[in-house]
Design a protein around this nucleic acid. Structure first.
Lengths: 206, 206
DNA sequence: ACCTGAACACCGTTCAAGT
DNA sequence: ACCTGAACACCGTTCAAGT
């Protein structure tokens, strides 16, 4: 008589996420997740092939809350902007997983649906062929990079303080800009850059 | 009589980079770098406090080849574009270190000088205050994200093939766009997105 | 001062055994 | 079928000892 499975992949994912949120990304080990679930480390290998697959499960768990339906209202740049902001918001709820995103992003079903939604808006806006490919990749690159900058080296962090204290003789612009940067919040930073990119897409020649 | 040091930080960095280039990033261990240098693992701790510091040394080694002098010729978007491409080229010579860049970027003296150079061009172009901060961060975010996409999930890779084979009923735009993506090379992808961003900066209102 | 070797407290994963 | 425990081949790092 086959014994029923005692766990689901979703339980694995949320146990792993609980470990990361509580103790940080370095604490994510097969042993810690097993302890979180009250089983032995080897039991996890019934559900994932290896640690890499567990990480992919965590990434999908974080992204699964993103609304992937194409935004309905406003101009097409506004609608694309809404989609990009949705992704940022989901990641913002679990900032410790940020380093896992670039590595496992392409295996996430949610990212596939989200991409389909963004492409739908771009297609309606008249983007076709290579131009649509480049637009999508530029949006993805900005989203991935900006989310990482925000959490791995925020303007409010020590890096900015260090730069503000740099010798003005050697780093005149950097010292001045770092001082200004103290007054730019994360929403303004992310939204400002996104607006620049969307404006560039809007004036993009055929 | 104090025994002279037998190693320099630069030797550590290039030995570590040799290990990474030959055996991949997971092969970067204190033990492997020590073996590469013909010393004991513990000898490394005379030169770095821990593994984290060794990683920072590797990142600086990769970026140290970037020319940080402000580009001299052309319009300001062209000059900023040249600076961003220089950073991409340096990373392209050691793609395996890409995952280390976002984490250790802000500790690199070369990145400080590069940033000073970019800010110099932006300042000449009339960017001041918050607008200059947002422009710099948008360029950084794009560079960091696009370089990662290029090496962690390239358009020429299996991800694109998977997407091209998706059911057309559920993913009409994605399947079509993935087919188009096969014809976009990495230079065209990176340069195309960068041009979009620079165009957005050029039309940015005060 | 600088380097070494043994040891400690971890990892991911294999394997043979239990129910 | 599914789960467990012991074991293996690794890690980074501490510590005491060598020259």
């Amino acid at each position: 008589m086959p014994r029923p499975r005692s766990l689901t992949p979703a339980q694995l994912a949320s146990a792993a996420l609980a470990v990361i949120d509580r103790d940080g990304l370095p604490a994510l080990t097969m042993r810690a997740v097993a302890a979180e679930l009250g089983t032995s480390p080897m039991a996890l290998y019934r559900y994932v092939a290896d640690r890499d697959e567990l990480e992919a499960l965590v990434v999908e768990e974080v992204l699964s809350t993103v609304d992937t339906a194409p935004a309905a209202d406003g101009s097409w740049p506004d609608r694309v902007g809404v989609m990009v902001r949705r992704m940022r918001l989901a990641v913002g709820r679990h900032p410790a997983v940020v380093p896992l995103l670039p590595v496992h992003r392409h295996r996430s079903p949610t990212v596939l649906r989200w991409t389909e939604g963004v492409l739908g808006v771009l297609a309606e806006a008249g983007f076709v062929g290579t131009r649509r490919v480049v637009a999508l990749r530029a949006l993805l690159a900005y989203a991935v990079g900006a989310i990482q900058l925000e959490h791995l080296g925020p303007l409010s962090g020590p890096g900015t303080t260090t730069m503000a204290a740099l010798p003005v003789g050697e780093f005149p612009h950097l010292a001045a800009t770092a001082a200004d940067a103290r007054r730019v919040g994360p929403d303004e930073e992310f939204g400002g850059g996104l607006d620049v990119l969307l404006r560039g897409l809007a004036v993009d020649p055929d």
